[in-house]
């Protein structure tokens, strides 16, 4: 179809397209935008720059902010300083294992809440949606975990923000990188890791850490799609609507795909001899109770910067409780 005006739009992601959230940017978001614009005057042609070809993981925000890309799959998880309040889920574990619910909640809050919108505008971005939900984080170890005391002195690799979850458990949290978990556990540098199922299977982590404990850390929000504000503001209503509506399609497809992948991951890992156990309520409560309340420290730091950290913390926790989640610990009420 020929458009009267067709503009080239660069979309950037630090992760490669094998990552589900990038795959659906390419296979769901872009086609949905183009379908919505079909027959209209303005067309968008996408130059897809993934896997660090233009910007690496954690660099997407600045590349989009500065205008090198018009749209970026921005990972708040890897940019905890510029998108600090978006990391609210990582300071509040044990809230919900329902990733789709967390994602839609975060998308809704960021669309509606002026304080969250302001944090995007401060970095010259317009949040489009397309929340990247991460499935329930698990504890995978090379030893069985029946009670909290089993973790005493064990070295557990975890992504940066999740190292805090290990404080107070007796385990030694080590900040690690998903790509090297396998070798680190195999050689014995780590005795286990905190990781999510949809990444554990491709990394074959169950081969070296066959004891999988669903501890209840919960699903997480890791980022979403954002557009350069100057560029976005210059677009017509049709383009703006097409972009935001495409994120609805993205969210549905992404989470359906994610749920299927998680189910398959458990099936395959169990089939390969891994032991999957659900931590009982007592152990979860003991774990959560033993943790430092990192959320309060996080909120206080943001409050000091004038970013309404405490309010966002309550906003998120209230919203999740209203949506039916039963947090093991009410981080906001201490």
């Amino acid at each position: 179809p020929a458009f009267a005006h067709e503009q080239l739009v660069t979309i950037v992601a630090g992760h490669p397209p094998v990552f589900r959230w990038v795959k659906h940017a390419s296979q769901t978001f872009i086609p949905a935008v183009q379908a919505a614009l079909e027959g209209s005057e303005h067309g968008l042609k996408f130059s897809e720059q993934y896997g660090g070809a233009l910007a690496g993981v954690g660099e997407e925000l600045e590349a989009t902010e500065e205008g090198l890309a018009e749209i970026g799959l921005v990972s708040s998880l890897f940019d905890p300083s510029k998108l600090a309040i978006q990391n609210v889920t990582y300071v509040t574990p044990f809230v919900s294992a329902d990733t789709a619910k967390i994602s839609s909640m975060m998308d809704r809050l960021q669309a509606e809440d002026p304080r969250m919108r302001a944090s995007w505008e401060a970095v010259n971005l317009e949040y489009l949606g397309c929340a990247i939900g991460i499935d329930d984080y698990l504890l995978m170890t090379d030893f069985p975990v029946e009670r909290l005391a089993d973790l005493e002195g064990r070295k557990i690799g975890a992504p940066g923000p999740a190292v805090n979850w290990l404080k107070g458990t007796g385990a030694v949290g080590v900040s690690g990188n998903l790509t090297t978990y396998y070798n680190e556990i195999k050689s014995g540098v780590y005795d286990g890791v905190i990781v999510f199922a949809s990444a554990a299977l491709p990394g074959k982590l169950h081969e070296v850490a066959p004891y999988i404990t669903r501890m209840g850390f919960g699903g997480q929000y890791a980022g979403g799609l954002a557009a350069n504000k100057d560029w976005y503001d210059a677009q017509g209503i049709a383009v703006k609507a097409a972009l935001k509506d495409a994120c609805t399609a993205y969210s549905e497809a992404y989470h359906a795909d994610l749920d299927a992948a998680v189910a398959k991951a458990f099936e395959v890992m169990q089939g390969a001899g891994a032991t999957v156990t659900d931590a009982d309520a007592e152990m979860r409560a003991a774990w959560a109770a033993g943790m430092e309340n990192n959320a309060l420290e996080w909120a206080a730091r943001l409050d000091a910067q004038g970013q309404a950290g405490s309010e966002i913390l309550s906003l998120y926790m209230d919203a999740m409780r209203e949506a039916g989640a039963t947090p093991v610990r009410d981080w906001d009420k201490e």
Binding site: P16, V18, G51, T179, T180, Y182, N183, P202, G203, K204
Partner: peptide, 21 residues
């Protein structure tokens, strides 16, 4: 092994780093 390029390939293709090494 160890190899930075094989780690990168593993990341790009969701293959096991252990297998690649």
């Amino acid at each position: 092994p160890p190899s930075l390029l094989l780690i990168l390939y593993a990341l790009l293709t969701e293959q096991s780093v252990g297998d690649l090494f």
